[in-house]
């Protein structure tokens, strides 16, 4: 059902946890609707230096979160903003069709974290 990459990121998720001193936090989804994830970013000189995530959800949701954090780490904010659901799914060698939307919230959560960082900095 899942690709080897999905299973790898699900069984050994990267960058799990909370970040006490995050520069930006983005949350997407809700357990009542399905999956939910939270992404924390640390930003220095416009570059995402650290990313962490917490996810409630199925195997795909956890793998997606893990992959997004790996992709985003080291990127500029502009580059990270260009990560999409499709590019995350592609990096995982695909997701089952029924999981493409409900579990693929990583890019949205990341974009919200970037927005949160920008809003905080703007103040």
């Amino acid at each position: 059902m899942y690709s080897e990459k999905v299973m790898d990121h699900f069984t050994n998720p990267r960058n799990v946890g909370e970040m006490a001193d995050a520069d930006g936090i983005g949350a997407e989804g809700n357990p009542v609707c399905g999956d939910a994830m939270k992404i924390f970013i640390k930003v220095k000189d416009n570059i995402i230096t650290d990313v962490k995530f917490q996810t409630f959800g199925c195997g795909a949701a956890i793998a997606v979160s893990s992959m997004v954090t790996e992709m985003a780490k080291g990127m500029t904010l502009e580059e990270a903003s260009k990560i999409t659901k499709a590019s995350v799914a592609e990096a995982l060698d695909g997701l089952p069709p029924q999981k493409m939307h409900c579990s693929n919230l990583g890019a949205d959560a990341l974009h919200k974290a970037i927005e949160d960082y920008k809003n905080k900095r703007g103040k």
């Binding site: 998720p13 799990v16 949350a27 997407e28 989804g29 809700n30 357990p31 009542v32 609707c33 399905g34 999956d35 939910a36 994830m37 939270k38 917490q54 996810t55 409630f56 956890i62 939307h101 409900c102 919230l105």
Partner: peptide, 18 residues
Amino acid sequence: ISPYSKGWEETEAPTCTV
């Protein structure tokens, strides 16, 4: 891994956009 391991915060009356 779960964001809710300390409790079900922010889960009441959600707006399910997904």
